[in-house]
């Protein structure tokens, strides 16, 4: 049984569906990278999984339980955290308080502080600058703190939406090293990435999305060398789409 399973999910804003029958399966402990052109519905998949958007039809199962349409708070408790694309730290609050905000739903304050301490050990940046305002950090540093904050609830599935957007090469490297180290700690990660080559290079599985459906799922290393990926990623042509839609690979 797969850890996360989306089957034929349709969802969107207003009358228009962005997702038009998305099916995707994730195995526990893997990093899966979703790539595809702008408007393909990559971020919308993450919004459905984190409860920010309710699926109109289709099923979402997490660890065997149906979770489609549950609220973000419930999904957080179940262990799904979402690190959104845009900067989501509170720039006037200290780095330490930003970290604690990730654990606001924990009833046990001592547990929250202990976890924050453990996370700070892992991210030296937090330890060094804990009393400084988050707004004083660079974009790359802020993204690292956002990922660190997501760890406060000890999540089982981390949804990362374009974590390297707007970052320079060095900061991108730092972010992906963090993704790798989190995965080595046993966490399942679903990554949405514009920089397909970089995203696939840290992932086990790649999924190519286009026009609101998953066209292709394969091992990330194979996708990196697949000519159809380049075609789809650039928008593709109808023939490739038809073939891609039929292609089903094991995750």
């Amino acid at each position: 049984m797969s850890f996360l399973r989306l089957h034929d999910v349709c969802a969107g804003y207003g009358q228009a569906d962005i997702l038009r029958g998305v099916s995707l399966e994730l195995e526990a402990g893997t990093v899966t990278c979703v790539i595809g052109p702008n408007g393909a519905g990559k971020s919308t998949v993450l919004r459905v999984l984190s409860g920010l958007l309710k699926p109109r039809v289709g099923t979402v199962e997490f660890a065997g339980d149906p979770v489609g349409g549950l609220s973000p708070a419930v999904l957080l408790r179940k262990g799904i955290v979402h690190v959104p694309q845009e900067r989501s730290l509170f720039p006037l609050m200290t780095i330490w308080d930003n970290l604690l905000m990730g654990g606001h739903s924990l009833r046990d304050g001592a547990l929250a502080r202990r976890r924050a301490g453990e996370i700070a050990e892992r991210f030296p940046l937090i330890e060094e600058r804990r009393h400084e305002r988050a707004g004083t950090l660079s974009g790359g540093q802020q993204k690292l703190i956002e990922i660190a904050r997501a760890l406060m609830l000890d999540p089982r599935l981390i949804l990362l939406d374009e974590p390297t957007m707007g970052l320079d090469a060095k900061a991108r490297h730092a972010v992906f090293e963090t993704v790798k180290s989190l995965n080595e700690g046993g966490r399942t990660i679903l990554l949405v990435e514009q920089n397909a080559r970089l995203g696939l290079s840290v992932s086990h599985v790649g999924a190519v999305m286009d026009m609101g459906v998953v066209r292709l799922v394969d091992e990330a290393s194979k996708l990196l060398g697949d000519p159809r990926v380049a075609a789809l990623y650039l928008g593709g042509n109808p023939d490739t789409r038809a073939n891609g839609g039929a292609a089903r690979a094991q995750g």
């Binding site: 973000p72 989501s88 509170f90 609050m93 604690l100 905000m101 606001h104 304050g109």
Partner: peptide
């Protein structure tokens, strides 16, 4: 305490706070 932390987050950006499940 936690209540203050959440209030400060609301003061700064209520939508972000809601996004974190507050």
């Amino acid at each position: 305490n936690k209540l203050g932390l959440m209030l400060f987050a609301i003061r700064e950006d209520e939508e972000k706070a809601r996004g974190l499940g507050v």
